[in-house]
């Protein structure tokens, strides 16, 4: 994980009703970034800028050593892209699509494509318009994977999939992860999917990156503390508190900077720590977004 595969530096893009604001992030080769945000948060705009399909107003983007969007042709030779709003040609068969894409990418691996056909239970002679949504996503994923990209960009690929199709798609992605040189950017508002496969997490809200960290670090730092406060005691001032819930006597604190030392600090102030709860990625995301929105209302 030495080389940087994707680098955003101070990237901004302004639309009449939306601003992608000063995005900076580095994605090392071989990492799997889960890119989480609510609908309209800026995930797709960020990804379109990464793909060179939208030109940023300011800042620089480098993908696999190529400046985007200027050098997008060279970069896209090594990128596999699947997006929820991407469609294949309905009147053509999957076999035609495979042959079309194979003619474009010199690294197309037919044996792997055939293996994916079997794994996804797809029939190459079937027309795309006759496929279900799940089959279409799998077909797009097959086309993106079979040319063996160094960077796989997946924009909400599991949205709208039934549980079986979702599991199959995620299972294939897990298999792809075995290649430690392949970098994946996986965007979704489904935190469960992201949590399963990512090793890094970025939260985006209202056009800003509000968190970008290793998944394990993020999960370790966020905790929910359930305290019991005697009538005489006051709520201790703890670092990184983003939310205070519960009642005066039984407060529930959400912290983004949990440290075991926090527990002794609570005891010193007369509070009893009843429980320290781990948080799911979804809980962390929601708490993070809500606390920031309270600080910076729209």
């Amino acid at each position: 994980m030495s080389e940087v595969c994707v680098r955003f530096q101070g990237v901004s893009k302004k639309y009449p009703h939306f601003l992608l604001d000063n995005i900076s992030l580095d994605l090392p080769e071989g990492s799997i970034l889960g890119f989480i945000g609510a609908n309209g948060a800026g995930k797709s705009t960020t990804i379109r800028i990464l793909m060179g399909l939208v030109r940023q107003d300011s800042g620089t983007v480098e993908v696999l050593g190529h400046a985007m969007p200027a050098d997008q042709v060279a970069a896209k030779q090594k990128i596999g892209f699947v997006s929820e709003d991407m469609r294949l040609y309905g009147a053509a068969t999957l076999a035609w699509h495979m042959s079309f894409v194979a003619s474009i990418y010199p690294d197309w691996n037919q044996a792997y494509a055939d293996k994916l056909l079997r794994r996804f239970d797809l029939k190459p002679q079937q027309k795309i318009k006759g496929l279900s949504h799940g089959q279409r996503v799998k077909a797009a994923l097959l086309l993106a994977l079979a040319h063996q990209p160094r960077l796989l960009v997946l924009d909400e690929p599991t949205t709208g999939l039934d549980p079986v199709a979702r599991r199959e798609v995620l299972a294939e992605l897990m298999a792809v992860l075995a290649d430690e040189h392949r970098t994946i950017l996986f965007s979704s508002h489904n935190t469960l999917d992201v949590e399963q496969i990512s090793d890094r997490i970025a939260f985006i809200d209202r056009g800003r990156i509000i968190a970008f960290d290793e998944k394990e670090d993020l999960l370790d730092r966020w905790r929910r503390l359930r305290l019991v406060l005697p009538p005489s005691a006051v709520l201790p001032q703890l670092p990184g508190i983003v939310e205070v819930g519960g009642s005066d006597r039984l407060p529930v604190l959400t912290t983004s900077q949990f440290d075991p030392a926090v527990l002794s600090l609570c005891k010193d102030r007369g509070a009893t720590v009843q429980a320290v709860d781990s948080m799911t990625l979804e809980e962390i995301f929601v708490a993070n977004v809500q606390s920031r929105r309270e600080l910076q209302p729209a």
Binding site: M51, L53, Q72, V73, A74, A75, K76, Q77, I79, F81, S83, D85, M86, R87, L88, Y89, G90, V101, I104, Y105, A140, A144
Partner: peptide, 14 residues
């Protein structure tokens, strides 16, 4: 209209 542009523009073409 039929959202095939995203597929086309994801290919290595300018």
């Amino acid at each position: 209209k039929e959202q095939t542009l995203a597929f086309m523009m994801s290919l290595p073409l300018s």
